[in-house]
Design a binder for these strands. Sequence first.
DNA 1: ATGAAAGCGCTAACAC
DNA 2: GTGTTAGCGCTTTCAT
Lengths: 338, 338
Amino acid sequence: MNPPSPQISRMEDVAREAGVARVTVSRALSHPDKVSPATRAAVRAAIERLGYVPNLTAGSLASKRSRIIGAIVPTLCNSWFADAMDGLAETLGAAGYQLMLGQSGYHIDQEAGLVEAFLGRKVDGLILTGVVHAPSVRERLRRNRLPVVEIWDMTDDPIDTVVGFSNLLIGEAVAGYLLQRGHRRIGFIGANEIRSGKRAQGLRQRLQAEGIGVAEATPVTPPSVIEDGARGLAELLALEPQLQAVFCSNDTLGVGALFECRRRGLQVPQDIAVVGFSDLAIAAACVPALTTVQVNSRELGRRAALVLLQRLGSAPAEEAAPSRVIDLGFQIIEREST
Amino acid sequence: MNPPSPQISRMEDVAREAGVARVTVSRALSHPDKVSPATRAAVRAAIERLGYVPNLTAGSLASKRSRIIGAIVPTLCNSWFADAMDGLAETLGAAGYQLMLGQSGYHIDQEAGLVEAFLGRKVDGLILTGVVHAPSVRERLRRNRLPVVEIWDMTDDPIDTVVGFSNLLIGEAVAGYLLQRGHRRIGFIGANEIRSGKRAQGLRQRLQAEGIGVAEATPVTPPSVIEDGARGLAELLALEPQLQAVFCSNDTLGVGALFECRRRGLQVPQDIAVVGFSDLAIAAACVPALTTVQVNSRELGRRAALVLLQRLGSAPAEEAAPSRVIDLGFQIIEREST
DNA sequence: ATGAAAGCGCTAACAC
DNA sequence: GTGTTAGCGCTTTCAT
């Protein structure tokens, strides 16, 4: 791990320097109250003098607790996942845990590989994005009884715990919103990815109940860029020239759709209404400002961390009893694009 | 045959199952070519049968290589850092390394704490944001001879290696750009943070050379939000009603400044020119589109990873000889706001 | 309150 | 090629 270094001191050295046994140093560090103030001071001084840094790898091996939490997100370039990791890392860090981060690239088997790697690293807990995973992953994690929090979607049957919101309900809610505003010819621009698919499904279900079909653009390969949204809208207009409203599976696509409208001289929202998802800063900043579905990513990360800490017995006292399913909900933010 | 073992199997168990010694299993895993195809197969089969997952903690302790890289950024909610981490994690992951992530919250001593924690975790290498660190950090890392890459700024004297761009030169370049377009009354809206300060300094230096001063808004506390930019512009206009141009230390502030202009009926760029920094998606999407300074965050992360892998001897062959200072440069992207 | 003994699960020499 | 012998640096019991 460390390249040939001058002299890294071990606990043994601290013990000698302080005139105590190794265990005493260990205790002074991990259970300070189980050591007399005098020895504690002596040990602290020795540590200071030697610039001793405890080897947590050795500690983890012996104690079987790593104080590492693994988290797997599809990608960090989507700022909603980045925000969630921000909240997660902050809360975990405050509790003395470290965050090990992996990116699945939206691939379930890349996720499975990371899970295996993290299990090998002996993480104390795991955060997984979504509720759909490789079967081996579900099974192994359940057998292990490892604290796991699935985020960013909803299910009745989590591996262990889920903290998120229902993508299906979001789709339905947007459908309801658009129906209520009198739209009938509705399109969807989404990504080739599970949770986007669920939002599409929600939209479809609700509209079907009214006997309305949905025009769907070819799903884009994530991460989405603005141009994808523009292309999507063009595709939809070719399919359905009378299009009255579009639900875009994320704000980036939404902004792209707005661009394409402008390019074609279509008035938003008069000619066509646009709804996004996730409420990025860009949604409020673009013109016309984008109506969207807001979810609080940082808070989601924070809550996920708290649930994990609770399961690990290091939770801040404030938090209540553990619940296996925590639905943080969502909110439609109405702006100029509808 | 055997029901899922409640016990986690160790290398010993695999060895027994395969009828070989522990080392052989170890070798089959880490140096497959040093083991006969037959035993290799036997070992693989045993591993499969037992669902064995190697304990990398134990491995790290014994081998003194953790295959973990620590990275510290101020925060992940700024998508430029998130993008860099994305590139970093992707490249490291492909080489079999795991990323341990910490957030300094822009505080040098929080960074120092994380560095210590990471050293205790025996990371094989470290990524640090910026070139200004606690003295203890510089000294300790240098003594350790730990592979370190500083990113997101430039220096002649890195702890070990630096991969980034010069924030100072960016400030100067923006000043030059604005001067060349005939602006003389120039303002700056920045954050209360080192690298933003360097961009301000660059701007100031270059303008001073022409005998021009800079109107500076009160630095905002990061992470910046759009409203900060609006407030900043208001403050500048109070200071200097004749303001002709503003350099905003990041695109979020820039968009905020654009908002405030619109609110006041100021024409951009006719009445006032606005330049941002970092080229977020929002810069291209807002109206008028924001002229900005582009840096490629993902690529920066990727390069940092490659440098680290090189120092660790696991670099993809393609990459050339190590250089301690890698300047990736920047580019002014001209849009409608100037 | 402190210490002695016994590992945690793995890898690195060095033999054979 | 494969096995034997020693640890890696720390945290547990369990005594004292």
